[in-house]
Computed example of a mutant assay.
Amino acid sequence: MTEIDAIDRRILALLQKDGRITNAELAQRIHLSASACHRRVQRLEEAGVISGYVALLDQRKVQRPTTVFVEITLTGQADDILDAFERAVRAIPDVLECHLMAGTADYLLKIVVEDTDDFARIHRQHLSRLPGVRQMHSSFALRTVFRTTAIPV
């Protein structure tokens, strides 16, 4: 793919704010013809810059108001240990994000739960069974100050 130019950046910024915007409205807002705008969006999709479109849900309205961050330290850093852990954690439907970290923990997980009982269930059924785990620390978010999915472009 060629470089992302200023017009592409404006398209990406607008789509991140409203993924349901029509091509006609998007074209109007960035001052392009509808066909030129559509070609640019298609090019960004085909290049994988736009990897998909999703609906963002309100955690509270789907009874998952509590965010838990789980720091995990493994027994080692060998590829087979990392691979086994990553395969297993991908299979846990409650885990929204898993990051390999540099720092005090090897991995950081983000989980949204109904309450402490729900987290206890997830811990008992899934987290405690993850391979290669030496230590686990969980922190409950008291309040989300702000959240965004928009990547600065």
Rank of each mutant, 00 (worst) to 15 (best):
Val68Ala: 13
Gln16Arg: 01
Ala91Cys: 06
Glu46Asn: 14
Arg39Thr: 11
Arg143Cys: 01
Ala55Lys: 15
Leu57Trp: 11
Val89Glu: 08
Ala91Leu: 11
Leu56Asp: 11
Arg143Ala: 11
Ser128His: 05
Ala24Asn: 10
Arg43Leu: 08
Ser35Val: 14
Leu32His: 13
Ala6Lys: 14
Val41Pro: 05
Glu25His: 09
Asp18Pro: 08
Ala36Val: 10
Glu86Cys: 04
Phe119Arg: 02
Ala13Phe: 07
Ile4Thr: 13
Ala24Leu: 09
Gly132Leu: 05
Val113Phe: 07
Ala105Ile: 06
Val112Phe: 11
Gly19Ser: 12
Gln28Ile: 03
Pro152Val: 09
Ala88His: 05
Glu71Arg: 14
Leu82Asn: 08
Ala78Tyr: 12
Asp5Arg: 05
Ala55Glu: 13
Leu74Arg: 01
Arg124Ser: 11
His126Ser: 01
Thr2Lys: 15
Arg43Met: 01
Arg129Gln: 14
Ile30Lys: 02
Gln135Val: 00
Arg124Gly: 07
Arg10Lys: 14
Arg143His: 10
Thr149Pro: 00
Ile72Gly: 07
Ala141Met: 05
Ala6Pro: 00
Leu12Thr: 04
Ile122Thr: 06
Arg129Asp: 10
Thr144His: 02
His99Ala: 12
Cys98Ser: 14
Leu74Met: 04
His137Met: 14
Arg129Cys: 10
Val89Asn: 01
Ile50Asn: 01
Val112Trp: 11
Ala6Trp: 10
Ala34Glu: 13
Leu82Phe: 04
Thr73Pro: 03
Arg134Pro: 00
Thr116Lys: 15
Ser128Glu: 02
Arg64His: 08
Arg129Leu: 09
Gln77Ser: 14
Ile11Trp: 09
Cys98Phe: 02
Gln59Val: 11
Leu109Tyr: 10
Gly48Ser: 02
Ala78Thr: 14
Asp8His: 04
Leu26Thr: 07
Arg90Glu: 12
Lys61Tyr: 10
Asp79Ala: 13
Val113Cys: 05
Ala78Glu: 15
Lys17Met: 11
Leu44Gly: 03
Gln125Pro: 06
Gln125Glu: 15
Val41Lys: 05
Asp94Ala: 12
Asp83Ser: 15
Ala120Met: 09
Glu3Gly: 15
Asp118Phe: 03
Ile7Ser: 00
Ala102His: 09
Asp79Ile: 12
Thr148Leu: 07
Asp8Pro: 07
Arg87Trp: 03
Ile21Cys: 08
Val68Thr: 00
Ile81His: 04
Pro152Glu: 02
His31Phe: 12
Gly52Leu: 05
Val133Asn: 01
Arg20Asp: 02
Val133Arg: 00
Ala36Phe: 12
Ala88Phe: 04
Asp58His: 13
Gly76Pro: 01
Cys98Gly: 10
Asp58Phe: 00
Ile30Gly: 08
Val68Pro: 07
Gln28Trp: 07
Gly76Trp: 07
Glu114Ala: 15
Val68Arg: 01
Ile30Phe: 06
Arg121Trp: 06
Arg9Gly: 09
Thr75Ser: 06
Ala105His: 08
Asp94Cys: 05
Cys98Glu: 10
